[in-house]
């Protein structure tokens, strides 16, 4: 086994450019691609020599870094942050539990806040679920009561 030879500056610069060009790629694909291109360059240079002319030929065959970058899978978009917990979100959640007859108001208000993208989304979804159950459960009980009265 022979150790990886030192690359001509031209090849080092190409590999650094490639790594930068893959900045928005899937991290694993980026690391594997750069490592594999490095090995390809080392193998080619071992065959053809490490002078500048050979280095240029190897890089020509590898192609522009932009062409390689065009083939990679973009990194997955980071999950949207849940948002900061604001006093209004807490009040709405508490309101739903303590003053349950106001659940429909809390439900509408929380939906409006969620759609406008302010406050903490996790707490808002919790309030929506809770107030939704209370609101629609209450409506269902009212309907059942009315049916019993009519019957």
């Amino acid at each position: 086994m022979t150790a990886t030879p030192a690359f001509p500056p031209l090849v080092d610069a190409y590999l650094a450019d490639l790594d930068r060009a893959l900045a928005s790629a899937d991290p694993r694909e980026r690391a594997e691609t750069v490592a594999a291109v490095r090995e390809h360059a080392a193998e080619s240079l071992a065959r053809h020599g490490t002078d500048n002319e050979s280095a240029r030929r190897v890089l020509d065959e590898l192609g522009p870094v932009e062409t390689i970058a065009a083939e990679v899978t973009p990194a997955p978009a980071p999950a949207a942050p849940a948002g900061t917990i604001e006093a209004r979100d807490v009040v709405l959640a508490v309101l739903t539990v303590v003053l349950w007859p106001l659940a429909p108001v809390a439900l509408v208000w929380t939906i409006v806040r969620l759609r406008s993208g302010v406050g903490n989304r996790v707490l808002q979804w919790f309030t929506i679920a809770l107030s939704g159950i209370i609101t629609f459960g209450g409506i269902a009980l009212l309907v059942m009561h009315a049916v019993n009265l009519l019957g």
């Binding site: 594997e32 594999a36 390809h40 870094v65 062409t67 899978t73």
Partner: peptide
């Protein structure tokens, strides 16, 4: 080496990484 399958030799490696994944 001169086939139309690859745009350039370097484009083989992202593809191989995906095949491995």
């Amino acid at each position: 080496t001169n086939s139309s399958l690859l745009t350039s030799e370097g484009t083989l490696y992202p593809l191989l990484s995906r095949l491995r994944q």
